Computed example of a mutant assay.
Amino acid sequence: MFLTRWRLDHLADASTLALTELVANVVRHVPGRRCTVLILREPYGLRVEVSDAVAGAVVAKAADPLAESGRGLALVEAVTDRWGCAEAAGGKTVWFECDT
Rank of each mutant, 00 (worst) to 15 (best):
M1T: 12
F2A: 15
F2I: 13
F2S: 13
L3N: 10
L3M: 12
R5F: 14
R7Q: 14
R7C: 02
D9M: 15
D9N: 12
D9L: 15
H10C: 10
H10K: 11
A14R: 07
S15I: 00
T16K: 12
L19E: 08
T20N: 10
E21A: 02
E21H: 04
L22W: 08
V23H: 05
A24L: 12
R28N: 01
V30F: 06
G32I: 00
G32Y: 07
R33W: 02
R34M: 09
R34T: 07
C35P: 06
C35S: 13
L38C: 13
L38N: 09
I39E: 02
P43Q: 10
P43I: 03
Y44D: 15
G45L: 00
G45D: 07
L46I: 13
L46S: 11
L46G: 04
V50W: 09
S51K: 05
D52G: 05
D52A: 00
A55D: 11
G56S: 00
A57H: 11
V59M: 09
A60D: 02
A63F: 03
D64C: 02
D64G: 01
L66Q: 08
L66P: 00
A67I: 06
A67M: 04
E68G: 15
S69V: 12
S69Q: 12
S69M: 08
G70F: 05
G72T: 08
V76N: 04
V76R: 03
E77P: 05
A78D: 11
V79W: 04
T80M: 01
T80Y: 03
D81A: 10
D81G: 14
D81H: 10
R82W: 08
W83D: 02
W83Q: 00
G84D: 02
A86Y: 10
E87V: 06
A88S: 15
A88N: 15
A89T: 15
K92I: 03
K92R: 15
T93Y: 03
F96K: 05
E97K: 06
E97M: 09
D99A: 07
